[in-house]
Simulated scan of single mutants.
Amino acid sequence: MSARVLDGADVARQLRRSVAADVARLGAAPGLATVLVGDDPASQIYVKNKRKQCVEVGMRDLHRHLSAEASQEEVESLIEDLNADHQVDGILVQLPLPKHLDFRAIIDRISPAKDVDGLTAISAGRLAQGRPGLQPCTPAGVMTLLDHAEVPLSGARAVVVGRSDLVGRPMAQMLLARHATVTICHSRTRELAEVTREADVLIAAAGVPQLLGREHIRPGAAVIDVGIHRRETGLCGDVDFDAVKEIAGIITPVPGGVGPMTIASLLRNTLDAAAATR
C-alpha cells in the first residue's frame, strides 16, 4: 500500500491564512527586512518569493540589497541599522553570502528579538535549552507538517539524517522537546540503513540527492524529505520518492512538501516577533 502523501503547499496556505488573520488583528503591520548581498540567481528567486508572500499576508516589505562586493563592515552596519529601526520587526539575511564575508559574524549581529530565521547563537542556545525564542523556519515547518498529519512524537524513535545548523541540529532539538528519542546521522555514520530502519519518524536533511531508498525505511514510518536538488529529469529530494512511498506510512513530496512550509514559518516568526513588542 502506498504512503499517504503530505501536501505541504496546502498546509502552508492554511498557515498563511492564519497569519494574515492575526496580522489584521494586530493593527500595525509587521515589517520584514530581507537582506540580499549580491545577485545569485537562486537567492534572488528565494527572496522574491519571501517578499511576495510577506505582502500577501499584510506585512511591510522592507527589503535591502547590497552589491556582491559589499564589505564585512558594510553588511554588519546595515544589520545594526535594521536592529535600531522600529519599523523592522524581523531581519532575514539570505544565505549563502559571498565567500569573502564571515556569515556567522553577520548573522550574530542580528538582534535575537528580530532573528526570524532563528540562526543566531543566542537563538540556537535558547532552542537547545528549551527556552522560548524564534526557531529556524524549515524545522519549524517540518514540525507543523508532523502535527497536521497527527504523527505521534512522544516516545517515538526519530532519526535525523544531517547535522547542519540550519536544519539538522535544530530539528533534533525540536523533536527532543516533543519527547521523541532522537538519533542524528551524518556522513561518518556507519551502516546508515541499519540506523534509519529503526525510525518511526525519519527526517532527510543530508543534502545528497536520493540518498535514502527503500532499504533505509521502516514499514509505516513517517518520512519527511527536506532536500531539494535540480537534475536533468527535474527536482528531487534526499529520498527516492518512488521507491520509498511503497513502504512508508507518510511521505512528503519534492517539490510541494517541506519547501512551502519554510516561508510560511518565516511569516509566523515575523508575526510573533512583532506581537512581542506590541
Rank of each mutant, 00 (worst) to 15 (best):
V142L: 04
V11N: 03
T189N: 09
M174Y: 09
I247N: 01
V116Q: 00
V93N: 03
L145D: 06
V182H: 00
D225H: 08
P170G: 11
G220T: 10
E246T: 14
E198R: 14
A12T: 08
G237S: 11
L78W: 00
L26Y: 03
D165T: 10
I263A: 05
G27V: 02
D165I: 08
S123Q: 07
Q44D: 14
P170E: 12
L212N: 10
V160Y: 03
T183K: 02
T262W: 02
V47M: 09
A205W: 00
A149C: 11
G237N: 03
G38W: 04
L266E: 05
V226H: 01
I79T: 11
L119K: 00
D117S: 09
Q173K: 10
Q173P: 02
R163W: 03
V5N: 02
R17L: 15
G8I: 08
G220L: 08
D147F: 03
I110A: 01
A193N: 11
P152C: 10
D225N: 13
A275Q: 10
L78V: 11
E74P: 06
V161P: 05
L82R: 01
T120P: 07
R104G: 04
C54P: 00
G162T: 07
A273C: 09
A12C: 10
H148D: 14
V160S: 03
R157F: 07
A105L: 14
P253A: 15
L212P: 04
V88Y: 05
V19K: 01
R268N: 12
H86M: 12
S164Q: 04
S77Q: 14
T120L: 02
I45C: 00
S43R: 01
R218P: 01
P112Y: 05
D85M: 05
S71A: 08
R16Q: 13
E246L: 14
G256M: 14
V23A: 11
T252K: 05
A274D: 09
G207I: 02
V239S: 06
L211Q: 15
A264R: 04
E246W: 01
I184P: 01
G155W: 07
V208N: 06
D165R: 15
R25I: 13
L92D: 02
Q94E: 12
R231L: 15
I250Y: 11
S2K: 12
A9Q: 15
R64G: 05
V75N: 06
V258E: 06
M59C: 09
A3H: 01
R188V: 10
V160D: 08
S18N: 11
I203L: 12
